[in-house]
Design a protein around this nucleic acid. Structure first.
Lengths: 226, 226
DNA sequence: ACTTTTCAAACTGTCGACAGTCGACTGTTA
DNA sequence: TAACAGTCGACTGTCGACAGTTTGAAAAGT
């Protein structure tokens, strides 16, 4: 009996090339290694990766559904570029989703949930103290994803995951080195307080403020870039 | 200066086979011509349509992002089947999205918007009087889509469009002949009243009630099917 | 010098084919 | 008879190739 792969991995290693290419492209786009609006040549990518064009095409379609690239028929795939209006729309949808998620979490609030969120925020703050750039944003998103996990709605979680790719794209659009300030991390305690209060109004206000600050920050950076 | 295509069509006619196959598969699944959980053979579809497998694969990936099919590696694509919990999640997310959309529409309410919505509801009621089965659901969704258009957030609209495919799948899961009753059409006036009131609370209550009724109706039908 | 036309290179859309893998059927054994 | 192992068939994943289209630049005309 021979093993088909490393048994340590909970999920078997990347199966098909499509997923591998999708991950590669996602990382490349979010790392700004591809300029927004840049054309993604199928043949160039395929030859660079040493594979055929078919997996590249399917991976590109996957990224299209995530909003990272757009396809123009007979023209190919292009790295998506967001203008101020689209960016504002993304954050507005995020407010709608987060309001809903927080409301659901508040409805099923428990000591266990409180403990998980507290630990997550403490982890967030400890990471914020560190100097590793870029990671803070991922840690921030991880906290918000935890909220959506605790909301206990798989479809809602998927909606957030889809949106989070565009959120990362928003961050990638502005200067990547301009990481979020460390003070943002501690700001998450206000969200937890909103949940603990048991008051939907207070919780919603905390969410609106939190996301609003993030939106304004990104918008301000975008304006600077112009 | 030569025109690049027929100027009458807002969207140029179907270009690539991928979109055509995607439309074909979407229609076939939502018409219950494919049983939920059924395996979609690439070769069978390709030979039936008289085309190659490549467009079929790409179209299937498109439908996967819309939640109509799921892909299992090395196993192929399967028509998605929703259990009661997933179905409940879909309607819960819909409540979240519609709350947000209605709130935005209410914030930018005007006589022009009121006129468009009134006309839409009247059209809805007139169609409901007719006997054509199945159309009522599409007309119902068209009204709600108008709400999301008037909400003036392209990303929010896209989220609804994505979800609407799953909503149609929910309807397809239950007996297609059990069309929604004609009384539902007139129920939309309550939504309009909620908007007109200018009171966010009243508007939100109307939305919650409206979507809740739809969810309970679908859930009840799903239970009957078991 | 500027606009228009032509043309070739590159690219996308689509196709047929091969190899590896998964599942089902069948034959064997306890 | 039931459980198990081996084999076979079918299917997906991937590849290379061809045809039609777009694009950009070179060439011709005003």
């Amino acid at each position: 009996m021979k093993s088909t792969g490393p048994i340590s991995a909970p999920f078997p290693v990347q199966r098909n090339l499509v997923d591998q290419v999708a991950d590669y492209l996602t990382e490349a786009i979010l790392s700004s290694r591809f300029v927004p609006g840049e054309r993604l040549s199928e043949v160039a990518l395929a030859t660079d990766l040493g594979i055929s064009r078919a997996p590249v095409r399917e991976a590109a379609r996957l990224l299209e559904s995530r909003g990272l690239v757009i396809s123009r028929p007979r023209r190919g795939f292009f790295v998506r570029s967001l203008d101020a209006e689209e960016l504002s729309d993304v954050f507005d949808l995020r407010i709608g989703l987060e309001r809903h998620a927080f409301e659901r979490v508040q409805q099923r609030y428990s000591a266990a949930i409180d403990a998980r969120l507290s630990a997550a925020i403490e982890h967030l703050c400890s990471v914020a103290e560190g100097q590793r750039e870029g990671c803070r944003i991922e840690e921030d998103l991880a906290f918000h994803r935890l909220i959506f996990e605790l909301a206990d709605n798989t479809r809602l979680l998927r909606a957030f995951d889809d949106l989070s790719f565009e959120l990362r794209l928003c961050i990638a659009l502005i200067d990547r080195t301009h990481d979020i300030p460390a003070s943002i991390a501690s700001a998450h305690w206000l969200l937890l307080e909103g949940l603990r209060s048991g008051d939907p109004q207070q919780c919603r206000a905390a969410v609106d403020h939190h996301i609003g600050v993030a939106r304004d920050s990104v918008l301000a950076h975008l304006m600077d870039a112009d």
